[in-house]
């Protein structure tokens, strides 16, 4: 297969180009507007954030950042979040890829109900499930541990990722599998060596999804985690904004510090958002 030049820049008229970039710039502005507010607020002292005067800058300071980084357990929370998110991502992708592949390729009994079952798991509201899940986790001795969070996040991430990957695997021609089988690959090897590399864009999407699910989740974390040194970032951040007397300045500073790595992860993930099919799975 040769690289194909897509219809694109070369043929675009200046007007179209202007419209395209104009729209994207506008959309980007809307996307970063509230984040810009968070960023600007993080540079203000607390009293200047909710105020009857709207200002971009007021008494600019980096004190909030230094407090968050040195005065709280933030670095520890960061580490915890990285661990939880990384494990959720790795385990989640592995399980959803195998599941998605099995459902896409093999017509085994229980296949269609399984997909429906995945949907049903997403239908019962989490808020109502938390108490019974806590009891189960307590019986397993997992309260206040990271595995509790990883397992809970997997229940959110895997059903979606399996659906997503199944859809993607469906679009990969089965002739590839058959060719691999003729070469003597078993079903697992075919999956691992032939199909998965081709599915890179979908894996990138699901990877990013699982990562962010674990990165930003609060409800389970607030139920299962009880000591400061086990907090994840998102839950740790919530400590800054109690019902009375919220510390907006620390919340916003911490939020900026939380968003940056997530943005970085995406920047690298998005490079894989290119077709693995046409380039035979070799394209970077």
């Amino acid at each position: 297969m040769s690289r194909v030049k897509r219809p694109g820049r070369s043929r675009r008229s200046p007007v179209m180009s202007f419209l395209l970039h104009g729209t994207l710039i506008l959309a980007s502005l809307i996307a970063i507007g509230p984040i810009a507010w968070v960023l600007l607020s993080s540079l203000k002292p607390g009293y200047a954030i909710q105020s009857s005067e709207l200002t971009l800058f007021r008494d600019t300071t980096l004190a909030n950042y230094s407090y968050v980084l040195t005065g709280t357990n933030f670095p520890r929370w960061f580490l915890n979040s990285v661990i939880v998110a990384a494990f959720t991502m790795a385990i989640g992708i592995f399980f959803s890829a195998t599941t998605g592949y099995a459902v896409s390729r093999f017509n085994f009994p229980g296949r269609r109900p399984l997909m429906m079952v995945f949907l049903v798991t997403q239908m019962f509201p989490v808020a109502i499930l938390i108490v019974p899940i806590y009891t189960i986790m307590a019986r397993l001795g997992l309260i206040n541990t990271m595995p509790a969070l990883i397992i809970a996040y997997l229940t959110i991430a895997v059903p979606f990722c399996a659906w997503m990957l199944k859809g993607y695997f469906d679009s990969i021609p089965t002739s590839l599998d058959e060719a691999a089988a003729l070469d003597g690959c078993g079903p697992f090897a075919t999956f691992w060596k032939v199909v998965l590399p081709l599915a890179k864009p979908a894996v990138a999407v699901t990877a990013f999804y699982t990562f962010l699910t674990a990165w930003g989740e609060v409800a389970y974390a607030s139920a299962f985690i009880q000591t400061d040194n086990r907090f994840t970032l998102a839950y740790g951040l919530q400590q800054f904004v109690p019902q009375f007397n919220p510390q907006w300045e620390y919340l916003t500073a911490a939020a900026v510090l939380v968003t940056l790595p997530a943005g970085l992860v995406f920047f690298f993930a998005q490079k894989h958002l290119v077709s693995g099919l046409t380039a035979g799975g070799t394209k970077g």
């Binding site: 959309a27 930003g216 968003t259």
Partner: peptide
Amino acid sequence: GLYRVLLVLPWAVPAFV
């Protein structure tokens, strides 16, 4: 690449923030 990152940022901020 820049547009993609900027447009995806809202997802990267914890939802409650």
